[in-house]
Amino acid sequence: MKRPRVVSERKRAILERSPPPSNRSRPHFWLKEEKRSDVEEALAGTGPLPLYISRTAEAEMRNHSISSGNQNLEAMGLLLGDVFAHSKKSYTVVKNVVTTDLEASGVSVSFHRNGFETLFDRLDETDFDYVIVGWYHSHPGYTCFMSPKDIETQQRMFREDFHFAVVLDPLKLQIEAFTLHGEGCISVPFAVYQEEHEDPYGRKKLSLKPR
């Protein structure tokens, strides 16, 4: 019997696009002070950061980690977004996140075997042509790091330069993003960005002068 045979491949192109502007991007307020300064410095520079997370996606992850953390459970989900290039550097934008029912404890987490239908529903509800650019999960009370199991997951599934892991600790109010580097993972700077239409106060004031 023949095995399935790949006959052709269509690669997704990486589009050239400016990153979210620095006046609508900021460090996460759960970042430690020194890391916050690093992000501010990077935002003032010329090149893009490796990772931008929308305010919507950030709030979803944070709220999920808090609600699970209140029950001393880990939270987890997938990061949906896209990869772009600017000034000969690629960067990742996380626009949204999806999750489903989980098998979780205070020290482990995975998708519940009966949760995939819900997960796929949520993927189908996404209003853009997503790429799964990584995953997020929480360590309630244990700080942000990549455990041996987390590194194994990163190595098995998220090996591209544009793949990231976001780890949150909702009890210590910490967040950090990681990517693969050699046999392990390194922390990377990231910014939370706000879409232009999300800021109702960003418009010019109406003139009240009489004509």
Partner: peptide
């Protein structure tokens, strides 16, 4: 889903879902 790329794959009737995953993962 992790890269947005896709492949065209030729299958025989006896091929299993596991073999599809293995072939794609190997590629």
């Amino acid at each position: 889903a992790e890269t947005g790329s896709s492949v065209e794959m030729e299958l025989e009737a006896e091929n299993t879902v596991e073999e599809i995953i293995e072939s794609a993962a190997s590629y």
